[in-house]
């Protein structure tokens, strides 16, 4: 097999890890609260700026990352309380549009504060060579953490009381109040976890990409597709969908160019929505 094709496939798997991690939090919110945070990738962008600036102030990187995760968890709760909760009862599309306003706000506020410069954190993780294939360590790390994050989330949802309540709410919104579960509290916790996962993704992305106010546009549309393709709230489905999409992009990019491979991925999404509207793995 062509070594470059193999490298494309390996890199595709690693990109899949990044996308899976990004989609994880969005998928949780999408699945549980039935809200599309269309600004999710821009929340990640904010996290990247936080890591960048804390590191720039001289904080050690792990501390900066931990602080970012906490900050974004709080931000997630804030978004839910300020934007989503007042319109929870209205049509889902309104919530999508309200977070669209947030998207505009975050992107332009970041431009206002930081300008449009591409900022690089300056921490470069090594590139690993393995049998003639070059692999970015940062991507490997993202891949591993996405895996750990997904597994941790899985056990949290399966093994804890709150996790069970979250799954129950996703299944039946109306009955859950009768079971003695505070729906509002569950939504806030879900939003916090979603925010924290955005923070985790931000920590890993900042090692691989330059930060700029519009970086969210690069990932945003992809991760919505992944959530929908995997089936809403289906963590495992989302995980697999992330790898399908990333392989299309990676192998497509090998045979043509980057933009065309994205065109291919988006077209694949549109077609699949018509073939399997409730996700690839829908029963």
């Amino acid at each position: 097999m062509d070594i470059y094709l193999l490298e494309a496939i390996v890199n595709g798997i690693l990109l899949g890890g990044v996308l899976a991690l990004l989609a994880l939090g969005l998928n949780l919110i999408f699945g549980v609260i039935d809200v599309v945070w269309i600004a999710y990738a821009d929340i990640v962008m904010c996290g990247m700026y936080v890591v960048y600036w804390l590191h720039d102030f001289g904080w050690p990187l792990p501390l900066a990352c931990a602080a970012t995760i906490v900050a974004l968890a709080a931000f997630g709760a804030l978004i839910h309380l300020l934007i989503i909760e007042p319109i929870l009862g209205s049509a889902p599309i309104n919530q999508l549009l309200a977070t669209g306003g947030l998207l505009f706000f975050l992107q332009s506020f970041a431009t206002l504060l930081f300008g449009t410069d591409f900022l690089n954190i300056g921490v470069r993780l090594p590139i690993i060579e393995f049998g003639g294939i070059y692999i970015s360590f940062a991507r490997l790390l993202a891949f591993a953490l996405a895996l750990v994050g997904a597994v941790a989330l899985y056990f949290f949802l399966r093994r804890t009381f709150i996790g069970t309540a979250i799954r129950a709410i996703a299944q039946d919104r109306d009955i859950i109040g009768l079971m003695g579960v505070d729906q509002r509290r569950i939504y806030i916790i879900t939003s916090m976890i979603g925010g924290a996962l955005a923070g985790l993704a931000a920590c890993l992305l900042v090692l691989q990409y330059d930060v700029h106010p519009f970086i969210g546009n690069t990932f945003g549309p992809l991760i919505f597709m992944i959530c929908v393709l995997g089936g809403l709230g289906d963590m495992i489905g989302g995980f697999i969908a992330a790898f399908v999409i990333s392989q299309i992009i990676s192998i497509g990019g090998y045979y043509s160019n980057t933009e065309l491979s994205y065109v291919l991925a988006f077209t694949f999404f549109i077609v699949l929505m018509f073939v399997r509207p409730r996700g690839i793995f829908a029963r």
């Binding site: 319109i87 209205s90 309104n94 306003g101 947030l102």
Partner: peptide, 23 residues
């Protein structure tokens, strides 16, 4: 740069949140 869209973004969120019946 971006001031206009910052205000615009806030305006949008307020519009959608506080004019729910219309929308």
């Amino acid at each position: 740069i971006g001031a206009a869209n910052t205000i615009y973004g806030i305006l949008l969120m307020l519009c959608i949140i506080f004019m729910p019946r219309g929308i």
